[in-house]
Amino acid sequence: MMPRTTMAALAACVLLAACDATPPDADPTYGLGQTPAATRLAAIDIDVNPSGAGLPEGRGTVTDGATVYAAKCASCHGAKGEGISPVPALVGRTPDVGYDFARADRAPRTIGNYWPYATTVFDYVRRAMPQSAPGSLSDTETYAVVAWLLHENGIIAANAEMNATTLPAVQMPARGIFVRDDRQGGRPFR
């Protein structure tokens, strides 16, 4: 007869082995949900990576962005991107680039002092803003708002146009403070 701890350990191993037997490409639903239609997947498959892969057609200028921002963003983020509590500021370079946010995390993280990639700003604005109607901005409006935000942070010129070619080329001031995540392991994702 086996001791209880040995039996418990053996049972745990059998259970873990059974869980691990599911092929990685299987999609168990446990009787919940439904398989999404291809059109639904296409509508949410809008990710943009730092290199600009995934950026849509369209273009936006700083001037057009000022108009869109005033109409759809300023009520929460302030007329100049200064933030209206509890909504964060978007514009500002204080503290300076290189500030140790990990040690003193009370400083505001703005596009001008913290965001490493302009494409990330585009991706976030397109998905999540405005808060009252996330994803409602057209691609052209999103490019325009991002152009305005980058200009207000002193990153691009007033006459700059943002599009799928120019946006990934923007050198964000804080890019150098981030360390690339090169961890390996786990299930791959795109």
Rank of each mutant, 00 (worst) to 15 (best):
M2C: 07
M2N: 11
M7D: 06
L10I: 08
L10E: 00
A12P: 04
C13F: 12
V14T: 13
V14I: 14
L15V: 11
L15S: 11
L16C: 14
A17T: 13
D20W: 10
A21C: 14
T22V: 15
T22L: 15
P24C: 10
D27M: 15
P28H: 12
T29Q: 13
G31E: 01
Q34D: 15
Q34P: 08
P36Q: 14
A38D: 13
A43Q: 10
I44S: 11
D45S: 15
D45K: 10
I46T: 11
D47L: 03
D47K: 12
N49M: 00
G52C: 03
A53L: 01
A53E: 06
A53G: 03
G54Q: 05
P56H: 07
P56M: 02
P56Y: 06
E57G: 10
G58E: 07
G65D: 06
A66V: 05
A66R: 11
V68M: 02
A70V: 06
A70C: 08
A71T: 03
C73S: 09
S75A: 13
H77T: 10
H77A: 09
K80S: 15
G81P: 09
S85C: 04
V87M: 13
P88D: 03
L90H: 04
G92L: 03
R93W: 01
T94Y: 13
V97P: 02
D100C: 00
D100E: 13
F101L: 06
R103G: 15
R109P: 01
T110E: 03
I111G: 00
G112M: 09
Y114K: 03
Y114A: 14
A118C: 11
T119I: 02
F122R: 06
D123R: 09
D123T: 02
M129K: 01
Q131N: 13
S132N: 08
A133V: 02
P134Q: 12
P134N: 10
G135L: 01
L137H: 00
E141I: 03
Y143H: 07
V145F: 07
V146D: 02
L149A: 12
N153R: 08
G154H: 09
I155A: 08
I156R: 04
I156S: 07
A158N: 12
A160G: 07
E161P: 01
T165Q: 12
T166K: 04
L167V: 01
L167W: 01
V170S: 09
V170H: 08
R175I: 13
F178P: 00
F178S: 01
R180A: 14
D182K: 00
R183Y: 02
F189H: 12
R190P: 00
